[in-house]
Simulated assay, not measured.
Amino acid sequence: MTQHDAWHKSSFSESMANCVEVAEGSVTRIRDTQNRHGVMLAVPAAEWVALVAGLDRL
């Protein structure tokens, strides 16, 4: 199993009810805050970095 930091939410979603949390490591895990034990998406860290960089340009 890979090492992950703690789960965290975006600072933009702190006051909203519909949020996702991420745990970043060699594989970035993404989950729904309202269903933490449900389905979790896992993507390679490089893909997560590329997604976030693309969103920053919007």
Rank of each mutant, 00 (worst) to 15 (best):
H37Q: 12
Q3V: 14
R29C: 09
A42G: 14
M16S: 14
D5Q: 12
M16Q: 13
Q3D: 14
V20Y: 00
H4L: 14
A42N: 04
R57G: 11
A50G: 06
S26T: 15
V27H: 07
A17K: 11
P44D: 04
Q3G: 10
Q34G: 07
A45M: 08
V27N: 08
D56H: 15
M1G: 13
E24H: 09
D32W: 00
T28Q: 00
V52L: 06
V43W: 05
E21M: 04
M40D: 03
R31I: 02
M16Y: 11
A53H: 12
G25R: 03
A50Q: 11
R31L: 06
M1D: 08
A17V: 12
L55R: 13
K9G: 05
A42H: 09
K9N: 11
E47T: 07
R31E: 05
R57A: 15
T28P: 02
A23V: 07
T2M: 12
H8F: 15
H8I: 07
N18C: 06
R57E: 15
D5F: 09
Q34Y: 09
S10A: 03
E21G: 03
L41K: 00
V52Q: 10
G25T: 03
G25V: 01
V27S: 07
P44R: 06
A23P: 04
E47S: 10
V20L: 05
Q34K: 15
G54M: 01
W48Y: 08
D32S: 03
W7P: 01
K9H: 12
V27E: 08
E47V: 10
S15C: 05
G38C: 06
V39F: 13
S15P: 08
R36L: 04
E47I: 06
L58R: 11
M40I: 15
A50W: 07
H4S: 09
A50I: 01
R57L: 13
Q3K: 12
E21F: 05
A17D: 13
A17C: 02
S10W: 01
S11I: 09
V52D: 00
E14K: 13
A50T: 10
